[in-house]
Design a protein around this nucleic acid. Structure first.
Length: 474
DNA sequence: CGCTTTTGACCAGCGC
DNA sequence: GCGCTGGTCAAAAGCG
């Protein structure tokens, strides 16, 4: 499979969710990369089209937002992205409220996005480093419908240069977000350009072993009981205290200064108790593992994410006429589960929730030959569905590259083929080492793109900072 | 034949 | 205690 031959790219022009090209178009664009032609702008040809999101799609978005808000426990503010320069934000080290640029957070395991063999070595885009810290209220990203929204598209063909930039003040590391967001627009050609909100979110619950995700490979399955409801000190009680690197007392004070109202900050690590209670409405969720919610627009009922899954249940849940499908990783040693459902208000929006951490690499794709099964590399699916699956989704994960392949398979990261991921978001995130090179392009009305570090850079930066601050040497 | 999905039943947590 | 709900189980059916 052809990779984007570019680098981690930030699209600095104002961006509006484009109408997405067909898989064929994408593949054609990808194949052009060998000519040194960055395909991004051609994949996203309508990047400058403003969107009137306050018209007929508002109902859809609000419905989704309300659902997410109900699920997570707080309302979702609208992101104001106008007049905000992503680059400015990116290289700003201090507070940038409502930064639209997605970042890796220490709370949300970087490995979830960077250590994934698929995501890191595929043509994938990765969650980029954070440009900014945000001390605002807990955020879910709600940006896709915004005019002038910005997006970042990434690739990771840059060499591993994790330490070639100045580290930001470590204080920002204290502010641990638990939610990330990015957009995965449909690559289907018939997407309404003013269509559905491309709201995506990560929810890292920072559960009992969430922090381990950054540091080591451990069985993510923890059947811990909920922490004592009466325990008001909000101390983390990770099982593996040796690697409890998130907060110390001082940091907690800082955190409390920022977030005086606990209930208003469900995304905070300190909201873990809240999350556990509120995020499972009537559910029986005993496994307090890290959870990631991924939303993307696609016609596939279960987009390939690089792993193989076995469906073990389906249920219609309250508030959504579309059934929710439950999957387990087919690896017998792996306890990761996920469930997939379509948006109640937007049938093109597929919401995938991952629970757990894969303790194995993604399996090789099942090759389809004449007369044999033709299954996707990931979740098995009916033939008719496979036939609708893009080639991108069927392609096997490419060989992992150093240093990616040396990383633990610690991620429950959704290993979606993020061939054309739009990322944006709000976050309270640390600055992570980045560097710039002049590899931008500006062609016609297409976004100017600035080369940004790849996943290895970001990962290395995080590791370095862990080492600097906590002495954790991976 | 092997593996998958389907689907109704069952289980367990939560709120009232 | 009861009902609601999300999550899981497991037998049957489907598919190549």
């Amino acid at each position: 499979m052809s990779d984007f031959d570019g680098n981690f790219i930030e699209m600095t022009s104002y961006w509006a969710p484009p109408s997405s090209p067909s898989p064929r178009t994408i593949l054609a664009m990808l194949e052009q990369t060998d000519n040194g032609m960055n395909p991004i702008s051609e994949i996203f040809p309508q990047t400058n089209i403003p969107r009137d999101h306050d018209t007929d799609q508002s109902g859809q978005r609000s419905g989704l937002r309300e659902r997410l808000a109900a699920r997570i426990g707080f309302s979702l503010p609208t992101l104001d992205t106008i007049n905000m320069s992503p680059l400015d934000a990116f290289f700003r080290s201090s507070t940038v409220p409502n930064s639209p640029v997605v970042a890796i957070s220490p709370g949300f395991s970087p490995s979830a996005l960077l250590q994934s063999p698929n995501m890191a070595s595929d043509s994938s885009q990765i969650i980029p480093p954070s440009p900014a810290t945000n001390y605002g209220p807990p955020e879910m990203v709600e940006t896709s419908g915004e005019d002038n929204a910005r997006t970042m598209v990434f690739n990771n063909d840059l060499p591993y240069q994790p330490y070639n930039v100045d580290l930001p003040p470590l204080e920002v590391f204290d502010d641990i977000p638990t939610e990330e967001s990015f957009y995965i627009p449909s690559y289907e050609p018939d997407v309404d350009p003013i269509g559905t909100p491309l709201v995506a979110s990560f929810e890292s619950e920072l559960g009992d072993d969430a922090h381990i995700d950054i540091i080591s490979i451990e069985d993510s399955e923890s059947e811990n009981e909920n922490k004592d409801e009466d325990d008001e000190d909000y101390q983390y009680d990770y099982e593996d205290d040796d690697q409890d690197v998130y907060l110390d007392e001082e940091e907690e004070e800082d955190e409390d200064n920022v977030a005086s109202d606990d209930d208003a900050q469900p995304s905070s690590p300190k909201r873990r108790r809240f999350d556990q209670a509120s995020n499972n409405i009537g559910a029986t969720r005993t496994s307090k593992t890290q959870r990631v919610i991924l939303q993307m627009e696609t016609d596939e009922d279960n987009p390939n994410d690089g792993y193989r899954w076995r469906k073990y249940g389906q249920k219609v849940v309250k508030g959504n006429p579309n059934p929710r499908s439950y999957y387990k990783c087919t690896n017998s040693e792996c306890k990761v589960k996920k469930h997939v459902e379509r948006g109640a208000d937007n049938n093109k929006l597929v919401v995938t929730t991952y629970d757990g951490i894969h303790n194995h690499p993604s399996p090789p794709a099942r090759r389809s030959n004449s007369g044999s099964r033709n299954r996707s590399a990931g979740t098995t699916m009916p033939q008719n569905q496979i036939d609708r699956t893009s080639r991108l989704a069927r392609d096997p994960p490419p060989p992992a590259r150093t240093p990616v392949e040396m990383r633990p398979f610690s991620s429950m990261a959704p290993q979606v083929n993020l061939s054309h991921v739009y990322m944006t978001g709000l976050s309270k995130l640390p600055n992570i080492p980045v560097y710039q090179n002049p590899g931008f392009m500006y062609r016609n009305d297409e976004p100017m793109m600035n080369v940004m570090p790849d996943g290895a850079d970001v990962y290395g930066g995080i590791m370095h900072r862990l080492f600097v601050k906590f002495g954790v040497d991976i």
